[in-house]
Design a protein around this nucleic acid. Structure first.
Lengths: 217, 217
DNA sequence: CGGCTAATTGTGCAACTGTATAATTACTGC
DNA sequence: GCAGTAATTATACAGTTGCACAATTAGCCG
């Protein structure tokens, strides 16, 4: 009797890559970075450990790919093309989008936390980190500038930078709290607090009705 | 010839414990959580790996002790007894203290990041986390309440809670940015931004002169 | 000075990790 | 159909890790 070997199907290379990245992400989110071993990832992806090395140069490469995917998903969900009649409305929607699921969620924050330590201590992940951070803050600063100009206020660049730093901080802080203590806030509460805070800091009215869905097609 | 054995001195038990905790903390801050193995910690503490188990039930117990120490150091430095003539001044000093070294520093944030992932996934560290967080926010909320009452403003409890959440978020966010991009901000810049933000959010004047050192003994 | 105790050392081990590599097999083009 | 090739499996290996345990020794108390 021939030794039984696991049967398998060949699927598209991109699909396999994605399956492994998905497995890695869900493992980190659910059981933490320490549990995300090559064997565990392979098992969850329904493959043999050896296959990981066929698609990625090393475990670190897989980790980098996973990090990149997670961060670009977050950025896309927040910075995505928010339509709005006014600049103020676009800003309001940006703030609210970042403080709602799926961006603000226990899984997203858990993942980010798992990666954070690895980002700081060398590796290719630092580039992704810097790029993501810069994109987010630049986007926010542009939205703020537009909204202030729209309101007829000329703000010099240093003050604009400070505004962007501060608004970014509130959003980050609320995002963190919301992800780490999911039950401590009512749905929509964080978005409202974020809106109020940014309003106060910029002295610019951002009202809840700005973020409501539009039913007019 | 008798096999040479490492000579050693007996030092107070508390001192040894502290040495191991120190070793663990500096190791995590400098080289990340992954590098903080029992052997590495023992080596840095100038001790044999076996001794760790004599003082701590497990590596996790040492980790918990280290986490507790780091967080209580942070809390003490921020919530510490800030004297001030007015409630507004005490609030201003609280904010500024949290956004200055050593609280806001690459080491402190690196350490926190290293622990963060472990906190979320079980263990005794969650209690420390919850306690630290609650202490910090309650302290902040009390300071805000005092400052608003002092200004003759009666604020209902739900609004007060939202204020505390928002102020806490700005401080956390700025702290994070400051620790992760230490060179992106001028000295004192974060404290100023924090002060301005809290001022705007509470509609309460917190001026830079409130946080200056007093020379009168 | 001489023992007692606990602090400290040294060694070993079983489990696990990332990775290398050879052996198989499912699919593709002819 | 049939060969060729890339995808996939299986196995093995060297290094590390946390931890257990017995052997030593420093300091204290009489």
């Amino acid at each position: 009797m021939p030794p039984e070997r696991k049967p398998f199907r060949r699927i598209g290379p991109d699909q396999r890559r994605d399956a492994m990245i998905d497995a890695m992400l869900s493992l980190i989110a659910e059981e933490g970075m320490a549990a995300a071993t090559t064997r565990a990832v392979a098992a969850r992806a329904g493959v043999t450990p050896g296959l990981i090395r066929h698609y990625f140069d090393s475990k670190d490469a897989l980790l980098s790919a996973a990090y990149e995917r997670h961060m670009s998903a977050l950025t896309a969900a927040t910075c995505g093309p928010h339509q709005g009649r006014s600049a103020a409305q676009r800003l309001a929607r940006f703030v609210a989008a970042g403080l709602r699921a799926p961006v603000t969620s226990a899984e997203a924050v858990s993942l980010w936390a798992g990666f954070l330590a690895h980002v700081q201590h060398g590796g290719a992940m630092q580039d992704t980190h810097a790029a993501t951070y810069a994109e987010f803050r630049d986007h926010l600063q542009a939205l703020i500038a537009d909204a202030l100009v729209e309101a007829g206020r000329a703000v010099p660049e240093p003050a604009l930078r400070r505004h962007a730093i501060a608004c970014n901080a509130v959003i980050d802080g609320l995002w963190l709290e919301g992800g780490m203590l999911p039950d401590a806030f009512a749905p929509g509460e964080l978005a409202r607090i974020g809106l109020d805070s940014v309003s106060a800091m910029l002295d610019l009215a951002l009202t809840p009705d700005m973020i409501e869905e539009e039913d007019t097609p």
